[in-house]
């Protein structure tokens, strides 16, 4: 008997109000503590899928279950706490005047106050190495720092699963590595949506390809990235000179 998976998606289909269908029956399961990359070309439906995971979008058909809890109106507050989504632009994610208030937002919305709240905020910021920036306004941080604070804002809710939308985009190599170190140090299930294939290989033992609204491949990242025919079919390309097999 295995433990309850962090995330279980069954037959998920969705069409936008304008009739454009983005998902055609997505099935995927993420075990506890797994780090999985979600790959796919632009327009494959990755963002649409992500917005289903915490109930922002409601499935046309199929189900999403987070740690055994079905995503639906009934458990919405709990689901939103369990699924921590880090959006691509930290300026969208960090909407409060100071880092501290921003990290406190989720737990405070859940009713936490006082010393308990301060402790949660301090711990979340320490986990991403941003403890000393608590009183700074987000605008005065570097892009890489803002991205790490964005991760802290969702870590503060002690999520079951961390969903990252293009975590490495716009980061310089040092910030990219610092974020990788942070992500590796976390004991939490991670679903990482990315075009950065070397980053996926570095951080995620397992990858999924979402293409034309369905999961087209699911397997060890190295095998997927080495399958040239599969990659070409889904408009995925490795950076020039990058050979997955050659990386330890």
């Amino acid at each position: 008997m295995t433990s309850t998976p962090s995330l279980d998606v069954r037959g998920l289909a969705y069409a936008y109000p304008d009739g454009h269908q983005a998902l055609f029956g997505v099935d995927l399961t993420l075990g506890r503590g797994e780090r999985v990359a979600l790959l796919g070309p632009n327009g494959a439906g990755k963002t649409t899928l992500v917005l289903h995971l915490n109930g922002i979008l409601t499935a046309g058909a199929g189900t999403v279950t987070v740690a055994g809890l079905p995503v639906g109106r009934k458990h919405m507050a709990e689901i939103r706490r369990k699924v921590g989504i880090v959006f691509q632009d930290p300026d969208d994610q960090l909407f409060m005047p100071t880092v501290r208030e921003d990290v406190a937002f989720g737990p405070a919305a859940a009713g936490l106050r006082g010393a308990a709240l301060d402790a949660v905020v301090a711990r979340a910021l320490d986990r991403v190495g941003m403890g000393e920036y608590a009183d700074r306004p987000p605008h005065h941080l570097s892009f890489g720092q803002r991205r790490r604070v964005a991760v802290a804002t969702v870590l503060a809710g002690e999520p079951e699963i961390l969903v990252l939308d293009e975590p490495s985009s716009n980061l310089d190599p040092a910030s990219r590595r610092e974020l990788a170190d942070v992500l590796r140090s976390l004991d939490v299930t991670v679903l990482m949506v990315t075009h950065d294939l070397p980053y996926a290989l570095e951080l995620c033992p397992r990858s999924l390809i979402l293409s034309e609204g369905v999961i087209a491949a699911d397997g060890p990242t190295r095998e997927i990235l080495s399958d040239e025919e599969l990659m070409t079919r889904h408009r995925l390309e490795l950076p020039y000179g990058f050979v997955p097999g050659s990386v330890a």
Binding site: I56, F87, F95
Partner: peptide, 9 residues
């Protein structure tokens, strides 16, 4: 969207 995702009501 980001606010709602973090429990804004």
């Amino acid at each position: 969207l980001a606010m709602v995702s973090r429990g804004y009501t």
